[in-house]
Design a protein around this nucleic acid. Sequence first.
DNA 1: GAAAAAGTGCCAGTCACTGGCATATTTTGT
DNA 2: ACAAAATATGCCAGTGACTGGCACTTTTTC
Lengths: 226, 226
Amino acid sequence: MTTRPAPEGEEHLPLRERKKRRTRRVLADTALRLFLQRGYDDVTLDELTEHARVSVRTFFRYYSSKEEVAMAAEGELWEAYARRLHDLAPGGPALEQLRDRYVAAVREMPGEWTERYLATRGLAARTPALRAHHTAATDLLQVRIIEALERVMGVDSRRDVRLRLVSDMTIAAVRYGSKNWIRENRTAERTGDGESLIREVVAAFDALPGAVALAPTSPEERPPAR
Amino acid sequence: MTTRPAPEGEEHLPLRERKKRRTRRVLADTALRLFLQRGYDDVTLDELTEHARVSVRTFFRYYSSKEEVAMAAEGELWEAYARRLHDLAPGGPALEQLRDRYVAAVREMPGEWTERYLATRGLAARTPALRAHHTAATDLLQVRIIEALERVMGVDSRRDVRLRLVSDMTIAAVRYGSKNWIRENRTAERTGDGESLIREVVAAFDALPGAVALAPTSPEERPPAR
DNA sequence: GAAAAAGTGCCAGTCACTGGCATATTTTGT
DNA sequence: ACAAAATATGCCAGTGACTGGCACTTTTTC
Protein backbone atom coordinates (compact mmCIF):
# COMPACT_ATOMS: atom_id res chain seq x y z
CA MET A 1 0.00 0.00 0.00
CA THR A 2 1.53 3.25 -1.07
CA THR A 3 1.35 5.86 1.64
CA ARG A 4 0.25 9.33 0.74
CA PRO A 5 0.33 12.60 2.65
CA ALA A 6 -2.72 13.01 4.87
CA PRO A 7 -5.25 15.30 3.20
CA GLU A 8 -5.82 18.69 4.72
CA GLY A 9 -7.98 19.21 7.76
CA GLU A 10 -8.99 15.71 8.65
CA GLU A 11 -6.75 15.23 11.62
CA HIS A 12 -9.40 14.75 14.23
CA LEU A 13 -11.73 12.45 12.39
CA PRO A 14 -12.31 8.88 13.54
CA LEU A 15 -10.24 6.26 11.81
CA ARG A 16 -13.09 4.85 9.79
CA GLU A 17 -14.06 8.24 8.42
CA ARG A 18 -10.46 9.04 7.55
CA LYS A 19 -10.10 5.80 5.65
CA LYS A 20 -13.25 6.47 3.71
CA ARG A 21 -12.15 9.92 2.67
CA ARG A 22 -8.78 8.56 1.70
CA THR A 23 -10.34 5.86 -0.47
CA ARG A 24 -12.64 8.39 -2.08
CA ARG A 25 -9.70 10.57 -2.95
CA VAL A 26 -7.56 7.70 -4.16
CA LEU A 27 -10.39 6.67 -6.47
CA ALA A 28 -10.90 10.17 -7.85
CA ASP A 29 -7.17 10.80 -8.28
CA THR A 30 -6.48 7.46 -9.89
CA ALA A 31 -9.46 7.88 -12.19
CA LEU A 32 -8.39 11.31 -13.32
CA ARG A 33 -4.81 10.17 -13.88
CA LEU A 34 -5.79 7.13 -15.92
CA PHE A 35 -8.46 8.94 -17.90
CA LEU A 36 -6.04 11.70 -18.82
CA GLN A 37 -3.37 9.19 -19.77
CA ARG A 38 -5.39 6.90 -21.96
CA GLY A 39 -8.81 8.45 -22.46
CA TYR A 40 -12.04 7.99 -20.53
CA ASP A 41 -13.50 5.34 -22.80
CA ASP A 42 -10.41 3.19 -22.91
CA VAL A 43 -10.13 2.74 -19.17
CA THR A 44 -12.43 0.14 -17.65
CA LEU A 45 -13.61 0.19 -14.08
CA ASP A 46 -11.75 -3.06 -13.57
CA GLU A 47 -8.47 -1.36 -14.34
CA LEU A 48 -9.34 1.67 -12.29
CA THR A 49 -10.26 -0.30 -9.21
CA GLU A 50 -7.22 -2.49 -9.72
CA HIS A 51 -4.98 0.55 -9.55
CA ALA A 52 -6.87 1.90 -6.58
CA ARG A 53 -6.74 -1.46 -4.82
CA VAL A 54 -10.43 -1.79 -4.18
CA SER A 55 -13.06 -4.05 -5.65
CA VAL A 56 -15.48 -2.83 -8.28
CA ARG A 57 -18.27 -3.42 -5.81
CA THR A 58 -16.62 -1.05 -3.38
CA PHE A 59 -16.12 1.55 -6.06
CA PHE A 60 -19.87 1.80 -6.46
CA ARG A 61 -20.26 2.42 -2.77
CA TYR A 62 -18.23 5.59 -3.23
CA TYR A 63 -19.34 6.83 -6.62
CA SER A 64 -22.57 6.11 -8.36
CA SER A 65 -21.07 5.99 -11.84
CA LYS A 66 -17.91 6.12 -13.88
CA GLU A 67 -18.86 9.62 -14.96
CA GLU A 68 -19.23 10.80 -11.40
CA VAL A 69 -15.74 9.75 -10.39
CA ALA A 70 -14.31 11.45 -13.46
CA MET A 71 -16.05 14.69 -12.57
CA ALA A 72 -15.37 14.38 -8.85
CA ALA A 73 -13.52 17.69 -8.66
CA GLU A 74 -16.46 19.56 -10.07
CA GLY A 75 -18.86 17.60 -7.90
CA GLU A 76 -16.96 18.75 -4.83
CA LEU A 77 -17.37 22.37 -5.85
CA TRP A 78 -21.09 21.97 -6.46
CA GLU A 79 -21.37 20.30 -3.08
CA ALA A 80 -19.68 23.20 -1.37
CA TYR A 81 -21.74 25.70 -3.33
CA ALA A 82 -24.98 23.93 -2.49
CA ARG A 83 -24.06 23.96 1.19
CA ARG A 84 -23.52 27.71 1.04
CA LEU A 85 -26.92 28.17 -0.56
CA HIS A 86 -28.57 27.23 2.70
CA ASP A 87 -27.70 30.51 4.34
CA LEU A 88 -28.96 32.89 1.68
CA ALA A 89 -30.27 35.96 3.47
CA PRO A 90 -33.38 37.92 2.62
CA GLY A 91 -32.69 41.53 1.77
CA GLY A 92 -29.56 41.88 -0.35
CA PRO A 93 -29.56 41.57 -4.14
CA ALA A 94 -29.90 37.90 -5.00
CA LEU A 95 -27.31 37.90 -7.76
CA GLU A 96 -24.65 39.38 -5.53
CA GLN A 97 -25.36 36.84 -2.86
CA LEU A 98 -25.18 33.99 -5.35
CA ARG A 99 -21.93 35.40 -6.66
CA ASP A 100 -20.43 35.69 -3.20
CA ARG A 101 -21.49 32.16 -2.26
CA TYR A 102 -19.68 30.87 -5.32
CA VAL A 103 -16.55 32.74 -4.37
CA ALA A 104 -16.74 31.36 -0.84
CA ALA A 105 -17.20 27.84 -2.19
CA VAL A 106 -14.11 28.08 -4.38
CA ARG A 107 -12.07 29.47 -1.48
CA GLU A 108 -13.21 26.53 0.60
CA MET A 109 -11.57 24.05 -1.75
CA PRO A 110 -8.17 22.61 -0.76
CA GLY A 111 -4.96 23.76 -2.41
CA GLU A 112 -4.51 21.19 -5.13
CA TRP A 113 -8.15 21.31 -6.14
CA THR A 114 -7.66 23.93 -8.84
CA GLU A 115 -5.31 21.74 -10.78
CA ARG A 116 -7.64 18.77 -10.59
CA TYR A 117 -10.56 20.90 -11.67
CA LEU A 118 -8.76 22.30 -14.66
CA ALA A 119 -7.70 18.83 -15.77
CA THR A 120 -11.20 17.55 -15.22
CA ARG A 121 -12.75 20.19 -17.41
CA GLY A 122 -10.16 19.58 -20.08
CA LEU A 123 -11.00 15.89 -20.05
CA ALA A 124 -14.71 16.62 -20.20
CA ALA A 125 -14.19 18.91 -23.17
CA ARG A 126 -13.03 16.00 -25.28
CA THR A 127 -15.30 13.28 -23.87
CA PRO A 128 -18.94 13.36 -24.99
CA ALA A 129 -20.19 11.21 -22.14
CA LEU A 130 -18.61 13.56 -19.63
CA ARG A 131 -19.89 16.66 -21.36
CA ALA A 132 -23.38 15.24 -21.04
CA HIS A 133 -22.83 14.47 -17.39
CA HIS A 134 -21.47 17.96 -16.86
CA THR A 135 -24.53 19.67 -18.32
CA ALA A 136 -26.83 17.39 -16.35
CA ALA A 137 -24.99 18.20 -13.13
CA THR A 138 -25.06 21.91 -13.90
CA ASP A 139 -28.78 21.62 -14.50
CA LEU A 140 -29.22 19.97 -11.14
CA LEU A 141 -27.30 22.79 -9.54
CA GLN A 142 -29.70 25.25 -11.07
CA VAL A 143 -32.61 23.39 -9.55
CA ARG A 144 -30.90 23.67 -6.20
CA ILE A 145 -30.44 27.39 -6.68
CA ILE A 146 -34.10 27.85 -7.50
CA GLU A 147 -35.11 25.85 -4.46
CA ALA A 148 -32.85 27.97 -2.29
CA LEU A 149 -34.35 31.15 -3.71
CA GLU A 150 -37.86 29.86 -3.17
CA ARG A 151 -37.00 29.00 0.40
CA VAL A 152 -35.54 32.36 1.30
CA MET A 153 -38.09 34.42 -0.61
CA GLY A 154 -41.11 32.32 0.19
CA VAL A 155 -42.24 32.43 -3.42
CA ASP A 156 -43.11 29.77 -5.94
CA SER A 157 -40.76 29.95 -8.93
CA ARG A 158 -43.69 29.17 -11.19
CA ARG A 159 -45.40 32.33 -10.08
CA ASP A 160 -42.43 34.64 -10.18
CA VAL A 161 -40.28 34.24 -13.28
CA ARG A 162 -37.56 36.34 -11.75
CA LEU A 163 -36.39 33.41 -9.69
CA ARG A 164 -35.80 31.42 -12.83
CA LEU A 165 -34.14 34.34 -14.53
CA VAL A 166 -31.78 34.91 -11.63
CA SER A 167 -30.83 31.25 -11.51
CA ASP A 168 -30.35 31.23 -15.26
CA MET A 169 -28.04 34.20 -15.03
CA THR A 170 -26.10 32.64 -12.19
CA ILE A 171 -25.54 29.47 -14.16
CA ALA A 172 -24.57 31.50 -17.21
CA ALA A 173 -22.05 33.50 -15.23
CA VAL A 174 -20.52 30.43 -13.65
CA ARG A 175 -20.42 28.67 -16.97
CA TYR A 176 -18.90 31.46 -19.01
CA GLY A 177 -16.59 32.58 -16.24
CA SER A 178 -15.11 29.16 -15.77
CA LYS A 179 -15.00 28.60 -19.51
CA ASN A 180 -12.92 31.71 -19.92
CA TRP A 181 -10.69 30.66 -17.08
CA ILE A 182 -10.14 27.30 -18.73
CA ARG A 183 -9.35 28.88 -22.04
CA GLU A 184 -6.73 31.12 -20.47
CA ASN A 185 -5.09 28.22 -18.73
CA ARG A 186 -5.14 25.79 -21.60
CA THR A 187 -1.47 26.35 -22.12
CA ALA A 188 -0.42 24.11 -19.30
CA GLU A 189 2.77 25.94 -18.37
CA ARG A 190 1.46 27.33 -15.14
CA THR A 191 -1.92 26.42 -13.76
CA GLY A 192 -4.11 29.32 -12.76
CA ASP A 193 -5.04 29.34 -9.11
CA GLY A 194 -8.42 29.54 -7.44
CA GLU A 195 -8.31 33.30 -7.28
CA SER A 196 -7.98 33.62 -11.04
CA LEU A 197 -11.03 31.39 -11.45
CA ILE A 198 -12.86 33.59 -8.99
CA ARG A 199 -11.85 36.69 -10.89
CA GLU A 200 -13.27 35.31 -14.12
CA VAL A 201 -16.55 34.21 -12.65
CA VAL A 202 -16.97 37.43 -10.70
CA ALA A 203 -16.30 39.35 -13.91
CA ALA A 204 -19.00 37.33 -15.64
CA PHE A 205 -21.42 38.03 -12.80
CA ASP A 206 -20.65 41.71 -12.87
CA ALA A 207 -21.07 41.83 -16.63
CA LEU A 208 -24.66 40.66 -16.32
CA PRO A 209 -26.26 44.07 -15.67
CA GLY A 210 -24.38 45.46 -18.65
CA ALA A 211 -25.37 42.49 -20.76
CA VAL A 212 -29.06 42.81 -20.07
CA ALA A 213 -28.86 46.47 -21.01
CA LEU A 214 -27.01 45.63 -24.18
CA ALA A 215 -28.40 47.34 -27.26
CA PRO A 216 -27.44 45.86 -30.62
CA THR A 217 -25.27 48.47 -32.22
CA SER A 218 -23.00 48.17 -35.19
CA PRO A 219 -19.45 47.04 -34.44
CA GLU A 220 -18.02 50.44 -35.40
CA GLU A 221 -19.88 52.25 -32.68
CA ARG A 222 -19.21 49.79 -29.93
CA PRO A 223 -16.59 47.07 -30.12
CA PRO A 224 -17.75 43.80 -28.50
CA ALA A 225 -16.58 43.11 -25.00
CA ARG A 226 -13.68 40.70 -24.51
CA MET B 1 -47.07 -7.68 -39.92
CA THR B 2 -49.70 -5.21 -38.88
CA THR B 3 -50.41 -2.68 -41.58
CA ARG B 4 -50.55 0.91 -40.62
CA PRO B 5 -51.62 4.00 -42.54
CA ALA B 6 -48.84 5.32 -44.70
CA PRO B 7 -47.17 8.29 -43.01
CA GLU B 8 -47.69 11.68 -44.58
CA GLY B 9 -45.72 12.82 -47.57
CA GLU B 10 -43.68 9.81 -48.43
CA GLU B 11 -45.68 8.62 -51.40
CA HIS B 12 -42.98 8.97 -54.01
CA LEU B 13 -40.06 7.58 -52.12
CA PRO B 14 -38.37 4.37 -53.25
CA LEU B 15 -39.52 1.24 -51.52
CA ARG B 16 -36.38 0.82 -49.50
CA GLU B 17 -36.57 4.33 -48.11
CA ARG B 18 -40.24 3.94 -47.27
CA LYS B 19 -39.57 0.77 -45.35
CA LYS B 20 -36.82 2.42 -43.41
CA ARG B 21 -38.96 5.35 -42.39
CA ARG B 22 -41.72 3.01 -41.42
CA THR B 23 -39.41 0.95 -39.21
CA ARG B 24 -38.06 4.09 -37.61
CA ARG B 25 -41.54 5.23 -36.77
CA VAL B 26 -42.69 1.85 -35.54
CA LEU B 27 -39.72 1.77 -33.21
CA ALA B 28 -40.35 5.26 -31.87
CA ASP B 29 -44.09 4.69 -31.46
CA THR B 30 -43.72 1.29 -29.83
CA ALA B 31 -41.05 2.64 -27.53
CA LEU B 32 -43.18 5.58 -26.42
CA ARG B 33 -46.20 3.39 -25.88
CA LEU B 34 -44.34 0.81 -23.81
CA PHE B 35 -42.40 3.39 -21.82
CA LEU B 36 -45.58 5.25 -20.95
CA GLN B 37 -47.32 2.04 -19.99
CA ARG B 38 -44.71 0.50 -17.77
CA GLY B 39 -41.96 3.05 -17.25
CA TYR B 40 -38.73 3.63 -19.14
CA ASP B 41 -36.52 1.57 -16.85
CA ASP B 42 -38.79 -1.44 -16.74
CA VAL B 43 -38.86 -1.97 -20.49
CA THR B 44 -35.84 -3.73 -21.95
CA LEU B 45 -34.71 -3.32 -25.50
CA ASP B 46 -35.43 -7.01 -26.01
CA GLU B 47 -39.08 -6.41 -25.29
CA LEU B 48 -39.20 -3.28 -27.34
CA THR B 49 -37.68 -4.88 -30.42
CA GLU B 50 -39.88 -7.91 -29.92
CA HIS B 51 -42.97 -5.74 -30.13
CA ALA B 52 -41.57 -3.85 -33.09
CA ARG B 53 -40.60 -7.10 -34.83
CA VAL B 54 -36.99 -6.26 -35.43
CA SER B 55 -33.79 -7.58 -33.90
CA VAL B 56 -31.92 -5.63 -31.27
CA ARG B 57 -29.06 -5.32 -33.73
CA THR B 58 -31.33 -3.62 -36.18
CA PHE B 59 -32.65 -1.29 -33.52
CA PHE B 60 -29.18 0.12 -33.10
CA ARG B 61 -28.98 0.83 -36.80
CA TYR B 62 -31.90 3.22 -36.37
CA TYR B 63 -31.28 4.75 -32.97
CA SER B 64 -28.00 5.07 -31.21
CA SER B 65 -29.43 4.52 -27.73
CA LYS B 66 -32.49 3.65 -25.74
CA GLU B 67 -32.70 7.27 -24.67
CA GLU B 68 -32.68 8.50 -28.22
CA VAL B 69 -35.66 6.40 -29.26
CA ALA B 70 -37.57 7.58 -26.21
CA MET B 71 -36.93 11.20 -27.12
CA ALA B 72 -37.44 10.68 -30.84
CA ALA B 73 -40.25 13.23 -31.09
CA GLU B 74 -38.06 15.95 -29.66
CA GLY B 75 -35.14 14.84 -31.80
CA GLU B 76 -37.26 15.30 -34.89
CA LEU B 77 -38.05 18.87 -33.92
CA TRP B 78 -34.40 19.68 -33.25
CA GLU B 79 -33.54 18.16 -36.62
CA ALA B 80 -36.05 20.36 -38.38
CA TYR B 81 -34.92 23.41 -36.42
CA ALA B 82 -31.28 22.75 -37.19
CA ARG B 83 -32.09 22.46 -40.91
CA ARG B 84 -33.80 25.85 -40.78
CA LEU B 85 -30.75 27.38 -39.16
CA HIS B 86 -28.84 26.99 -42.38
CA ASP B 87 -30.72 29.80 -44.06
CA LEU B 88 -30.31 32.47 -41.43
CA ALA B 89 -30.04 35.79 -43.22
CA PRO B 90 -27.73 38.64 -42.36
CA GLY B 91 -29.56 41.85 -41.57
CA GLY B 92 -32.65 41.22 -39.48
CA PRO B 93 -32.61 40.94 -35.70
CA ALA B 94 -31.11 37.58 -34.78
CA LEU B 95 -33.58 36.77 -32.04
CA GLU B 96 -36.56 37.31 -34.31
CA GLN B 97 -35.04 35.10 -36.95
CA LEU B 98 -34.33 32.37 -34.44
CA ARG B 99 -37.87 32.68 -33.16
CA ASP B 100 -39.35 32.44 -36.64
CA ARG B 101 -37.22 29.45 -37.53
CA TYR B 102 -38.54 27.65 -34.48
CA VAL B 103 -42.10 28.46 -35.49
CA ALA B 104 -41.44 27.16 -38.99
CA ALA B 105 -39.91 23.98 -37.63
CA VAL B 106 -42.93 23.24 -35.47
CA ARG B 107 -45.27 23.90 -38.39
CA GLU B 108 -43.25 21.45 -40.44
CA MET B 109 -44.02 18.59 -38.08
CA PRO B 110 -46.78 16.15 -39.09
CA GLY B 111 -50.22 16.25 -37.50
CA GLU B 112 -49.87 13.69 -34.74
CA TRP B 113 -46.47 14.96 -33.71
CA THR B 114 -47.80 17.31 -31.05
CA GLU B 115 -49.35 14.51 -29.09
CA ARG B 116 -46.20 12.41 -29.23
CA TYR B 117 -44.11 15.37 -28.13
CA LEU B 118 -46.30 16.14 -25.17
CA ALA B 119 -46.22 12.52 -24.05
CA THR B 120 -42.47 12.41 -24.56
CA ARG B 121 -41.88 15.40 -22.36
CA GLY B 122 -44.20 14.02 -19.73
CA LEU B 123 -42.21 10.80 -19.72
CA ALA B 124 -38.92 12.67 -19.54
CA ALA B 125 -40.19 14.68 -16.59
CA ARG B 126 -40.38 11.57 -14.46
CA THR B 127 -37.36 9.70 -15.84
CA PRO B 128 -33.94 10.93 -14.68
CA ALA B 129 -32.03 9.28 -17.51
CA LEU B 130 -34.26 11.00 -20.03
CA ARG B 131 -34.04 14.36 -18.31
CA ALA B 132 -30.28 14.11 -18.59
CA HIS B 133 -30.51 13.19 -22.25
CA HIS B 134 -32.89 16.07 -22.81
CA THR B 135 -30.56 18.66 -21.33
CA ALA B 136 -27.62 17.22 -23.26
CA ALA B 137 -29.58 17.39 -26.51
CA THR B 138 -30.68 20.94 -25.77
CA ASP B 139 -27.09 21.84 -25.13
CA LEU B 140 -26.09 20.40 -28.47
CA LEU B 141 -28.80 22.44 -30.12
CA GLN B 142 -27.32 25.56 -28.59
CA VAL B 143 -23.96 24.70 -30.06
CA ARG B 144 -25.61 24.40 -33.45
CA ILE B 145 -27.25 27.79 -33.00
CA ILE B 146 -23.95 29.40 -32.15
CA GLU B 147 -22.31 27.79 -35.16
CA ALA B 148 -25.09 29.08 -37.39
CA LEU B 149 -24.71 32.57 -35.98
CA GLU B 150 -20.96 32.47 -36.46
CA ARG B 151 -21.45 31.34 -40.03
CA VAL B 152 -23.91 34.05 -40.99
CA MET B 153 -22.18 36.83 -39.09
CA GLY B 154 -18.64 35.81 -39.86
CA VAL B 155 -17.66 36.30 -36.23
CA ASP B 156 -16.02 34.07 -33.68
CA SER B 157 -18.32 33.52 -30.70
CA ARG B 158 -15.31 33.72 -28.42
CA ARG B 159 -14.71 37.27 -29.54
CA ASP B 160 -18.27 38.50 -29.50
CA VAL B 161 -20.21 37.49 -26.39
CA ARG B 162 -23.44 38.56 -27.96
CA LEU B 163 -23.59 35.40 -30.00
CA ARG B 164 -23.55 33.35 -26.85
CA LEU B 165 -26.07 35.61 -25.18
CA VAL B 166 -28.46 35.38 -28.09
CA SER B 167 -28.19 31.60 -28.20
CA ASP B 168 -28.68 31.46 -24.45
CA MET B 169 -31.82 33.53 -24.73
CA THR B 170 -33.11 31.42 -27.56
CA ILE B 171 -32.66 28.25 -25.58
CA ALA B 172 -34.26 29.89 -22.56
CA ALA B 173 -37.28 30.98 -24.58
CA VAL B 174 -37.72 27.56 -26.15
CA ARG B 175 -37.29 25.88 -22.81
CA TYR B 176 -39.64 28.06 -20.80
CA GLY B 177 -42.17 28.39 -23.60
CA SER B 178 -42.47 24.65 -24.06
CA LYS B 179 -42.45 24.11 -20.33
CA ASN B 180 -45.43 26.41 -19.94
CA TRP B 181 -47.15 24.68 -22.81
CA ILE B 182 -46.63 21.33 -21.14
CA ARG B 183 -47.94 22.60 -17.84
CA GLU B 184 -51.09 23.87 -19.47
CA ASN B 185 -51.71 20.60 -21.21
CA ARG B 186 -50.92 18.31 -18.33
CA THR B 187 -54.61 17.67 -17.84
CA ALA B 188 -54.83 15.23 -20.71
CA GLU B 189 -58.46 15.94 -21.67
CA ARG B 190 -57.62 17.69 -24.88
CA THR B 191 -54.09 17.86 -26.22
CA GLY B 192 -52.87 21.27 -27.21
CA ASP B 193 -51.99 21.59 -30.86
CA GLY B 194 -48.83 22.83 -32.49
CA GLU B 195 -50.13 26.38 -32.68
CA SER B 196 -50.60 26.59 -28.93
CA LEU B 197 -47.01 25.45 -28.46
CA ILE B 198 -45.94 28.11 -30.92
CA ARG B 199 -47.91 30.75 -29.05
CA GLU B 200 -46.18 29.90 -25.80
CA VAL B 201 -42.69 29.89 -27.22
CA VAL B 202 -43.29 33.07 -29.20
CA ALA B 203 -44.60 34.69 -26.03
CA ALA B 204 -41.40 33.63 -24.25
CA PHE B 205 -39.28 35.05 -27.07
CA ASP B 206 -41.20 38.29 -27.04
CA ALA B 207 -40.91 38.56 -23.27
CA LEU B 208 -37.13 38.60 -23.53
CA PRO B 209 -36.71 42.34 -24.19
CA GLY B 210 -39.01 43.07 -21.27
CA ALA B 211 -37.13 40.57 -19.12
CA VAL B 212 -33.76 42.10 -19.76
CA ALA B 213 -35.18 45.51 -18.87
CA LEU B 214 -36.71 44.13 -15.71
CA ALA B 215 -36.07 46.26 -12.66
CA PRO B 216 -36.60 44.59 -9.29
CA THR B 217 -39.55 46.37 -7.78
CA SER B 218 -41.66 45.37 -4.83
CA PRO B 219 -44.61 43.08 -5.57
CA GLU B 220 -47.13 45.79 -4.70
CA GLU B 221 -45.98 48.07 -7.46
CA ARG B 222 -45.70 45.48 -10.16
CA PRO B 223 -47.11 41.98 -9.87
CA PRO B 224 -44.77 39.39 -11.42
CA ALA B 225 -45.60 38.24 -14.89
CA ARG B 226 -47.29 34.87 -15.26
C1' DG C 1 -32.23 -11.57 -64.99
C1' DA C 2 -27.68 -11.28 -62.87
C1' DA C 3 -24.57 -8.45 -60.27
C1' DA C 4 -24.17 -4.93 -56.92
C1' DA C 5 -25.76 -2.49 -53.01
C1' DA C 6 -28.06 -2.08 -48.92
C1' DG C 7 -30.70 -3.94 -44.92
C1' DT C 8 -31.43 -7.61 -41.45
C1' DG C 9 -30.60 -11.31 -38.13
C1' DC C 10 -27.75 -14.14 -35.34
C1' DC C 11 -23.82 -14.96 -32.27
C1' DA C 12 -20.57 -14.13 -29.19
C1' DG C 13 -18.51 -10.66 -26.55
C1' DT C 14 -17.51 -6.31 -23.51
C1' DC C 15 -18.57 -3.41 -19.88
C1' DA C 16 -21.20 -0.60 -16.54
C1' DC C 17 -23.84 -1.54 -12.81
C1' DT C 18 -26.63 -4.38 -8.92
C1' DG C 19 -28.30 -7.74 -5.15
C1' DG C 20 -26.96 -10.97 -1.83
C1' DC C 21 -24.14 -12.96 1.36
C1' DA C 22 -19.81 -14.19 3.77
C1' DT C 23 -15.77 -12.06 5.77
C1' DA C 24 -13.01 -8.47 7.89
C1' DT C 25 -12.47 -4.11 10.37
C1' DT C 26 -13.82 -0.53 13.47
C1' DT C 27 -16.54 1.12 17.12
C1' DT C 28 -19.13 0.72 21.34
C1' DG C 29 -20.22 -0.74 25.90
C1' DT C 30 -18.71 -3.02 29.86
C1' DA D 1 -9.12 -5.55 27.35
C1' DC D 2 -12.76 -7.99 25.21
C1' DA D 3 -17.29 -9.27 23.36
C1' DA D 4 -21.07 -7.56 20.70
C1' DA D 5 -22.84 -4.42 17.44
C1' DA D 6 -22.16 -1.61 13.54
C1' DT D 7 -20.14 -0.85 9.41
C1' DA D 8 -17.03 -1.69 5.34
C1' DT D 9 -15.18 -4.77 1.91
C1' DG D 10 -14.92 -8.57 -1.33
C1' DC D 11 -16.72 -12.18 -4.11
C1' DC D 12 -20.16 -14.25 -7.14
C1' DA D 13 -23.52 -14.50 -10.18
C1' DG D 14 -26.45 -11.86 -12.61
C1' DT D 15 -28.89 -8.11 -15.96
C1' DG D 16 -29.02 -5.15 -19.68
C1' DA D 17 -27.19 -1.76 -23.04
C1' DC D 18 -24.33 -1.73 -26.75
C1' DT D 19 -20.76 -3.58 -30.59
C1' DG D 20 -18.17 -6.26 -34.33
C1' DG D 21 -18.39 -9.75 -37.63
C1' DC D 22 -20.46 -12.54 -40.92
C1' DA D 23 -24.06 -15.06 -43.38
C1' DC D 24 -28.47 -14.24 -45.50
C1' DT D 25 -32.26 -11.74 -47.73
C1' DT D 26 -34.29 -7.87 -50.14
C1' DT D 27 -34.07 -4.00 -53.19
C1' DT D 28 -31.86 -1.53 -56.79
C1' DT D 29 -29.10 -1.12 -60.88
C1' DC D 30 -27.60 -2.23 -65.44
